[in-house]
């Protein structure tokens, strides 16, 4: 199955709105939300069937058995993550689950074998697979392991094995671990850029990150009319970086209305919707052509 990943670097550029519209236009049989930290795609999708939810386990976490603990403090001294709290009044050591990274150094050093490494639910993996396949997840607050969860979200789609031609993936913001996991293995990236100086700064960082993986990229500018000069600058960046420019989308208050009605922008009659349709045609053309060359 081919994967089209929608990325933006900066948050709030309209990545999920565009992903929702693309899924609708493509009548996509499979799609996923890799923004596991703040998933939103499900809010604009009509999901009739029941979701299959399963726990996602991250790294094991340390647990101190208070009956065995002699309060020697060796664990705290050696924890590089400052994840062990000491209550002086009670002379008691406990693990801060938000700090513990599961390295097991404390378990190794504890002279009384009072520390065990226990399984830890770091989030939920969610899969709808009746008609369309929709894979998403929710990371627990303050959890690490977001990269692995992203990979699991993508794996859920692939493992359904229904001979579906392609999937559309809403990526995560930033340039860190979850983004790298989102990019790994995809066939094309659609970048959603915003013509603001922040947007351009973030765009350059995401381009550098994606270049690392040698995945072909195409780019669209959303809300291009908030600053047409900067929009031109982004088009120039595309030429310089040899990224195919697939069109621009105007700012449209109706997009907000659509989102709040839990519709996609292409479900209502609006300028943004019409522009997205053109962007979609160009993108899919390149995406599917790209496929034939394989």
């Amino acid at each position: 199955m081919k994967e089209l990943l929608i990325l933006s670097g900066k948050g709030g550029t309209g990545k999920t709105t565009i992903a929702g519209a693309f899924i609708k236009l493509a009548q996509a049989q499979a799609f996923a939300d890799c923004d596991v930290d703040a998933p939103n795609l499900h809010l604009s999708m009509e999901l009739k069937d029941e979701a299959k939810v399963k726990d996602f386990y991250g790294m094991d976490k340390a647990y101190i058995n208070q009956d065995k603990c002699i309060s020697c403090g060796i664990c705290k001294e050696n924890c590089k993550f400052e994840a062990i709290n000491y209550d002086g009044d009670k002379n008691k050591y406990t693990i801060n689950p938000y700090g513990c990274e599961g390295c097991s150094v404390c378990q190794f050093l504890c002279p009384e074998d009072a520390i065990s490494m226990e399984k830890d639910v770091a989030g939920q993996l969610i899969l709808y697979d009746k008609e369309q396949i929709f894979s998403t997840a929710k990371l627990k607050m303050g959890s690490g392991n977001s990269g692995l969860l992203v990979s699991e979200v993508k794996k859920q789609v692939k493992s359904t094995n229904r001979g579906i031609e392609f999937s559309i993936i809403d990526g995560s913001p930033g340039i860190g671990c979850p983004v790298i996991a989102s990019i790994t293995g995809v066939d094309m990236i659609l970048l959603v850029a915003e013509p603001t100086i922040s947007g351009i700064s973030d765009l350059m960082r995401i381009i550098d990150t994606a270049n690392h993986f040698k995945v072909p990229m195409v780019l669209t500018i959303n809300k291009y009319d908030i600053n047409e000069d900067l929009s031109k600058k982004i088009e120039a960046i595309c030429r310089e970086k040899e990224i195919d420019f697939v069109g621009k989308i105007p700012y449209d208050k109706k997009a907000v209305e659509a989102v709040n009605k839990r519709l996609t922008v292409v479900d209502i009659d609006c300028q943004a919707g019409k522009s997205i349709k053109k962007v979609f045609d160009k993108t899919m053309n390149l995406f599917l052509k790209n496929k034939e060359n394989e």
Partner: peptide
């Protein structure tokens, strides 16, 4: 060889 797999 594809770039590293990242699971945190």
């Amino acid at each position: 060889v594809h770039e590293g797999y990242h699971g945190n």
